[in-house]
């Protein structure tokens, strides 16, 4: 069983789950970019909303749900492009939700490059589950 013990002086082995510095940069870059893009969109949407309706009285309503154009990814984008304040704000939420998804997609590239078939499959399962959450289950 000694063969299982990694020797620190060994040359880089194909089973090393660490990611290369270049890919680490890509992964953390994706996360940072997503968060910044979402924050900028949120600030634009928020400013738009407050300039139009900032003076209105806020009412904490009981739960009624959101209108359909604010609940589907496919409807939010066109509404946001028409500079609807609520849709732009919801677009920032959508960018935030998409950020970890893009991160998982980047990991897929990493495992493909390492020819790690097992983890390519594992990552595809995670991506499929994320897609189910984002598009599939409408209740």
């Amino acid at each position: 069983m000694n063969a299982l013990k990694p020797n620190p002086s060994d040359s880089p082995d194909p089973h090393d789950p660490h990611i290369t510095p270049a890919l680490e940069k890509v992964l953390s870059g994706v996360l940072t970019a997503g968060v910044i893009a979402a924050a900028i969109t949120a600030i634009i949407g928020g400013a738009l909303f407050l300039s139009q309706r900032g003076g209105e009285t806020t009412q904490i309503s009981p739960f009624v749900g959101q209108p359909s154009w604010l609940t589907s990814p496919l409807a939010i984008v066109p509404a946001a492009l028409h500079a609807d304040a609520l849709a732009v704000m919801q677009l920032s939420v959508l960018i935030l939700i998409a950020t970890p998804v893009v991160r998982v997609a980047c990991s897929l590239v990493l495992f493909v490059m390492k020819r790690d078939g097992l983890y390519v499959a594992v990552t595809l399962v995670v991506l499929a589950l994320l897609a189910v959450g984002l598009f599939g289950v409408a209740t």
């Binding site: 939700i97 998409a98 189910v132």
Partner: peptide
Amino acid sequence: AASAGIYLHRGQIDP
């Protein structure tokens, strides 16, 4: 992110 997508569909995310 997996559950937030479902919350979004259900109208539980108020911007």
